[in-house]
Design a protein around this nucleic acid. Structure first.
Lengths: 126, 126
DNA sequence: CCGAATCCACAACGATACTG
DNA sequence: CAGTATCGTTGTGGATTCGG
């Protein structure tokens, strides 16, 4: 994705459509809250309120908004239990779990280079 | 990261400092343009203008802004050749190349689930 | 060619209130 | 408890300009 560079074909409408779709998806998921939600969900099944406290700092609005987006893209399953009070559970789909693996990679990376980054910041802020 | 849940220790100031730093870094890099820049740079060394056209749709301002941020965090090296007109080259550091691997993973994931996602979107938009 | 600063339109976001 | 809608504020990001 990102790249027509990999396509040798000069004129390919289908590829460019796939590219723009890929770009759209990328823009959807490459944001702080979406990735934090995915990481927090992990292998668990969580209720809305649990996610609310699990994803630290997220507002009610941002959480619903991102959950809708993730559901729309087929990354999370949303199950509503028509009880009273209502109970709504969220869990990662297979696609979601696939993405989660790469997000885990990002987290590992952050841990590994934490000191590195901290040092780089200090020398930059001279 | 993300999670004090993994720490058994109830009171650990250092861990929470590391956590908030990790969170800060995560917020920095978990954004569309930063990831696209990293992905576009790849193994190459590119000038500002080349990045400008390589990262499709990015504005002058966003590009400089994100490049500064990436430089500050030690993900890209910035080399200025004091010629006239000036020539500035950007390349990934070792840390940057490490992160790139996980971004590659995200791109692969996008490709694999493209059809999946497209279908999910259609059924969601009923 | 690259970078910084200014201006400003508009989207994102938080807070709040109301519904089932 | 979970979701939607509205409102007011903040802030993001594009266009433009100037300077090295």
């Amino acid at each position: 994705m990102v790249t027509k560079q990999f396509s040798g074909l000069p004129e390919d409408a289908d590829l460019s459509r796939a590219d723009s779709l890929a770009r759209e998806i990328f823009s959807d998921i490459a944001n702080k809250w979406a990735l934090l939600i995915i990481e927090t969900l992990g292998e668990q099944t969580l209720r809305f309120g649990e996610l609310r406290t699990g994803v630290e700092g997220v507002s009610h609005k941002m959480l619903t908004q991102n959950l809708r987006m993730l559901e729309r893209n087929g990354l999370v399953d949303r199950t509503v239990y028509p009880t009273v009070p209502p109970r709504v559970e969220y869990t990662l789909t297979e696609a979601g779990r696939g993405l989660r693996k790469t997000v885990d990679g990002m987290c590992d990376w952050t841990q590994r280079y934490l000191g590195h980054i901290e040092a780089s910041r200090r020398s930059f802020d001279d």
